[in-house]
């Protein structure tokens, strides 16, 4: 029974990480904008949802959604100045924003400072997470097969050509970033109501890097890959910890190496980059004589 609970717990965490990975994949994999602060948006979702539930006794689902909306709002605020430009300012801005946010959380009274917030009711369970994963992937997939999703990919492929096709690239980049932050906010809320205790370090730079590793490992621009990456990088540390607690000290060293090696040796990730929604399109009958 205890073992069973442990497995369920790991599975639940995998689900939360899947939401984080597929949402970062939307920003970095599909739209091509590197974000180094995805965990920050998770944190905003977690803190907002928790405070609503603890202080204002708002029910779980509205708290969760409001937390996600708050994360999206911050995503938008950060995205507007940084995504107007070509180049890689988003990476630095998200990095800086993450640190500022941590600073604020550490200093504010209402967020409990470094102690964080305790006594959150345990609401999140495997069923709720599974449902959330399904909703997130379903909606994300709908977006990606639509005009909006194709515009995201076009921006990644060639920003200038995308503009020449009439795509307002700034707005679409901000849109992708905001949606990504929204999903991360959901994951944060689920996280808070699972572990019942949050503090600023849960949502720091290292967590952001961990999420990035999931996406890179599975394959950038590939939802199935992000899912695989999330599962692998959730289970692997658990497994290694059971082998030797020492190894977990080397975890970040390994993550660093992983990013470099994957970029050089297999940038498309473990799964090749024909993601499933591409295949879905080609099955549809209208796709032309050449369709398989």
């Amino acid at each position: 029974m205890k073992r069973m609970n442990y497995y369920l717990q790991v599975l639940t965490v995998i689900g939360i990480n899947i939401i984080l990975a597929v949402s970062l994949n939307l920003v970095s994999g599909f739209t091509g904008q590197l974000s180094l602060g995805h965990a920050t948006f998770m944190g905003i979702g977690a803190y907002t949802a928790t405070l609503l539930a603890l202080k204002l006794h708002v029910p779980f689902i509205p708290s969760l959604i409001f937390g996600a909306a708050m994360a999206a709002f911050f995503g938008f605020i950060i995205g507007v100045p940084t995504l107007r430009l070509k180049g890689d300012y988003l990476a630095i801005a998200t990095l800086g924003f993450g640190e500022i946010m941590k600073n604020i959380l550490l200093n504010l009274k209402i967020t409990g400072g470094p102690m964080g917030l305790r006594g959150i009711p345990k609401v999140t369970n495997i069923y709720i997470v599974a449902a959330a994963v399904v909703v997130v992937i379903f909606t994300l997939n709908r977006i990606m097969i639509s005009r909006v999703g194709k515009s995201f990919i076009a921006i990644r492929e060639d920003e200038l050509a995308a503009e020449a096709m009439g795509i307002n690239t700034t707005n679409y980049k901000i849109l992708a970033f905001t949606i990504g932050a929204f999903y991360a906010g959901i994951a944060g809320g689920l996280f808070a109501f699972l572990f019942r205790y949050i503090n600023p370090n849960n949502f720091g730079f290292m967590k952001s890097i961990e999420i990035l590793c999931m996406v890179v490992l599975g394959g950038m621009g590939n939802t199935a890959g992000a899912i695989l990456g999330a599962a692998l990088l959730t289970v692997l540390p658990e497994f290694l910890r059971s082998v030797s607690p020492l190894i977990s000290q080397y975890r970040m060293v390994f993550y660093g190496l992983l990013l470099v090696v994957m970029m050089i040796v297999r940038p498309q990730g473990l799964l090749s980059n024909t993601s499933f929604y591409f295949r879905r399109i080609s099955v549809e009958k209208n796709a032309g004589k050449g369709g398989r």
Binding site: I153, E157, D158, L160, A161, A162, M165, I167, L175
Partner: peptide, 24 residues
């Protein structure tokens, strides 16, 4: 400057971006 990783069809579909309106 094509969208290299996208299908030929999708390239032309993207071309119609400014004549269509589906949002999120």
């Amino acid at each position: 400057r094509l969208f290299g990783e996208m299908s030929v069809l999708d390239n032309v579909i993207i071309g119609q971006h400014c004549r269509t309106r589906t949002g999120v």
